[in-house]
Structures are given as C-alpha cells and as structure tokens.
Write a protein that binds this DNA or RNA. Structure first.
Lengths: 99, 99
DNA sequence: AAGATATATCGGCTTTTTCCGATATTCCAA
DNA sequence: TTGGAATATCGGAAAAAGCCGATATATCTT
C-alpha cells in the first residue's frame, strides 16, 4: 500500500469523478444495466461519459488500479473496472490513525 | 475544501513525513520543549530535520496550509505550524462516505 | 540605526504529470 | 481468416511539481 501512489491517483479531478461514478454504477451507467454490474463498468462507458480520449481513460483506470483503488476484470473484449471498497475503508482508517 | 488540492498536498513523501512528525512534536522535536507546542513547531526545526532546503520546507508548509491540513501562527520571528486534526477527521470521513 | 535571525518569495533547472493522436494487441463474429 | 470492436501501449508536447540558491521581508537585539 504505497501512500504516495494512492494520493497521487486521487489528486486529479477526472479520476475522482470516475471513482464517484463507480460508486453508483446503476445510476451513472444505466445503459449497461442488461450486463449487470458485478464486475464493474467497462472502459468505453467511462470514456464516453468523461469526454476524455480512450487512451487517457484507459491510463487513468490503470493508475487507479496500480494504487489499489479499483480492480479490473477482463471478459471477452471488455475490461470491467470496479471500486475496491476495502481499499477506501483502509485509507480512511489510515488517515484517522496513522497519517 | 478542495479535494484535489488536499490529495496533491498529501502525494509527496517529504510532506507526509512532516505531517507525521507534527503528530507527535514532543517526541520528534524535543529541542523545542522549552517553548511548548501549543502553537506547533517552527519552520527551522522542520528544516533541520528534513534535510531539505529552508525554501523548500517553507513552500511545503505553505502548501499544506493551503490544503487546510495545518495551521500557522506567527510569533515574533517564528512561524509555528501545527496539524489541523479536524481536517484529517473530515478527510477520513469524506473518504469513507463521499469519494 | 545596523546587524543578526527566521521565514517567505523568486527565478530557474529538472523531473513528473497531463492529455493527446497514432498504433498495437486482443478477442469476437461472419 | 478477415474485419471490426474494445482496450492497451507508445511517443510526444505542454503544464505542473520538485527542489534548489539567491534574495527579500519581518522581527528582534544592541
């Protein structure tokens, strides 16, 4: 758990926005409803909603994953990204106890 | 409370170290014991301990203050910096509820 | 008033981040 | 097996962050 890496991942408006969307995917990505959300939301949906290029979104998601804040699941040609709530709980605890 | 600014302030090893020192100033800055720690620790002490230049430390403390993570008190020729524990509590809460 | 001390600010060089377009890879479907 | 669709990676230009030395400002002392 690299603290600096986590905080770097969080210090960008677009990445915070993505994390916020992923907190309630049913609401923010209704077009994916048929597939269910167990594995998260795929890159393309986030790309469309964000207004950033596909490559940027893919890189941002990778950086969130390196920080441990999301997990990814490949399914066919899609990669689904999902929040790692344990990581947020741990971070919250870290801030109130250690940092 | 600018989230991006807060996380940027936290995404640096030296600044995290400073915050850690300020969590227990009696222990980390015993040489300042006579003055008491009600107002925090002055820039020079942090400068000495950090190995960074005075200007860098001053800038880092300013950035922590802009983020709301520390408060500063000028007393004579010294500026004392002190953790703002309310901000950390609020941040911890923010992470577990909002982000 | 003049020097000493503590801190802040400025200019600049280097490294990192931001974000893009182009291209590569992976997987599916006809 | 060929084309298309989704994602990842690469190369790069611009902006920001990391740090520094030099200098400015503020305060205290004599």
């Amino acid at each position: 758990m690299d603290q600096v890496e986590i905080f770097k991942a969080l210090s960008n408006k677009a990445r915070l926005q993505i994390l916020h969307w992923l907190k309630d995917p049913e609401y923010h990505f209704p077009e994916q409803k048929e597939n269910g959300f167990e594995h998260g939301v795929c890159v393309g949906q986030i790309h469309q909603k964000s207004g950033l290029t596909q490559s940027t979104v893919s890189e941002y998601l990778t950086s969130l994953q390196r920080a441990g804040l999301v997990t990814s699941t490949r399914a066919g040609q899609w990669t689904y990204y999902k929040r790692n709530e344990e990581a947020f709980a741990a971070l919250s605890e870290l801030i109130q106890k250690e940092i």
